[in-house]
Amino acid sequence: MSPQAHCLVVYASLNQVHRVKRRLYQGGVYVDMVRAPKCLGVSGCSFALRCEPDLLSAVRRASLETAIEIRGVFSESPAGYCPLP
């Protein structure tokens, strides 16, 4: 992943994004919410959290703690999107 890249963590709905975002916020972690690009092919009308790569583990942990399924994780850079494991 290039140093400029962000991560997109995709969820099924805005409600789920809010839940995870709030859990992160309570731990002092601030991330953005965005509509998930359709080209990711994850799920129609999805929303995502956009974060720095070093916050990805915190996002994954918050998702686990709130029992919210992550539909996909991607790196985002000017070159496009690349799925991450």
């Binding site: 099924a12 709905s13 805005l14 409600n15 799920s43 129609g44 009308c45 999805s46």
Partner: peptide
């Protein structure tokens, strides 16, 4: 049932 803003496909 209808639009929910999720799983639209």
């Amino acid at each position: 049932m209808g639009g929910t803003g999720s799983d639209s496909e």
